[in-house]
Design a protein around this nucleic acid. Structure first.
Length: 303
DNA sequence: ACTAAGTCCTGCTAGC
DNA sequence: TGCTAGCAGGACTTAG
């Protein structure tokens, strides 16, 4: 699933051909992929035709193509199965191809930016650009509520801690809340919790500052390592703009390793096994020996 | 029938 | 009793 490292790989892949390019006429093969765009396919197509694209940008899992002039941008969100592909004009359609944007790149070459999305959680939409007062960044309005991501230069773990302990929730749920810290999804949440030896159900108000620092440092570490090898690919759902897979799946310690030995336990002579636990109609993967379930919460249970 | 999951939206509840 | 902020959970989606 695309999380921050995968979105960043896609951003870099797009940058070479999109930065400074001139857009042609957008083909909308499935209007559901532009359902968030004001005015629908027609308005988006009209705005893009002939528009100059600037350097692609990203915050958390949100990507966008700023349009020359700086007043608006095309947001590209991958959802859970979205891909951006850069193809030669006339290349055969991919299965689940939803959008096709011809571009004349800065070097004069012709390409197509294509949006392929099996499950249609993602999409493209036109959005005004606003200034985020906290960072000074220019961001699309629909991404303005998103917190800084862990790889942002101004990311402040202690500020996240202060906000975290005010919450009456649990740790993994908080890590997935894009308004607290952005870019983390189910894979990197499980990996960071394993690395920091913290249970996903740990109450947020009982987190210590060293624990918060540890889990956020683990997020940064696992994201940087994933980025270095092109992201995490489990199947054909996530690929780079060239259609190539990332190699981080083989480095995962918790996610997707249900029933397999915990490698840290094995290295230390213990026999922990990764288990899968239900979580928000989804799943968490963890080692019960490294990540013991917190003792019963001190939170008041009404009844 | 059930699995995968990012984000938006709705509705509930605690607390004042 | 009523308001609000914050939190939890459902809806959306398709292939295997």
């Amino acid at each position: 699933m695309p999380e921050l490292p995968e979105a960043e790989v896609v951003r870099r892949g797009m940058a070479r051909w999109a930065a400074g390019a001139t857009a042609g006429e957008l083909a909308v093969l499935d209007p559901r992929s532009v359902r968030r765009s004001p005015g629908g396919a027609g308005a988006l197509r009209e705005r893009l035709a002939g528009a100059e694209l600037a350097e692609p940008a990203r915050r958390g899992k949100f990507l966008w193509l700023p349009l020359a002039g700086g007043e608006d941008a095309v947001v590209v969100h991958l959802g859970m199965s979205g891909q951006v592909r850069v193809d030669d004009p006339g290349a055969p359609d991919q299965r689940h191809l939803r959008l096709r944007l011809p571009v004349r790149s800065a070097d004069g070459s012709a390409h197509e930016l294509r949006f392929v999305d099996q499950r249609i959680f993602g999409g493209w939409w036109l959005d005004p650009v606003v200034q985020d007062p906290a960072s000074g960044d220019a961001v699309p309005a629909s991404a303005a509520h998103i917190a800084l991501d862990p790889l942002h230069p101004l990311f402040d773990a202690d500020e996240v801690h202060r906000r975290l302990v005010r919450r009456r929730s649990t740790l993994k749920r908080a890590l997935l809340d894009q308004t607290l810290v952005s870019g983390i999804g189910n894979i990197y949440a499980d990996e960071a919790l394993w690395a920091a030896r913290l249970h996903p159900e740990r109450p947020t108000e009982r987190m210590t500052r060293p624990q918060t620092r540890a889990v956020l440092a683990a997020v940064q570490d696992v994201m940087r390592r994933a980025l270095a090898v092109g992201g995490t690919s489990f199947d054909a759902l996530y690929v780079n703009v060239d259609g190539r897979s990332g190699y981080f799946a083989r480095s995962l310690e918790a996610y997707g390793r249900t029933g397999q030995a915990c490698r840290r336990c094995a290295a230390e002579g213990r026999e922990g096994v990764i288990v899968r636990e239900p979580f928000m109609n989804r799943a968490s993967h963890l080692c019960p020996r490294c990540q013991p379930r917190p003792r019963r919460s001190t939170r008041t249970v009404t009844g």
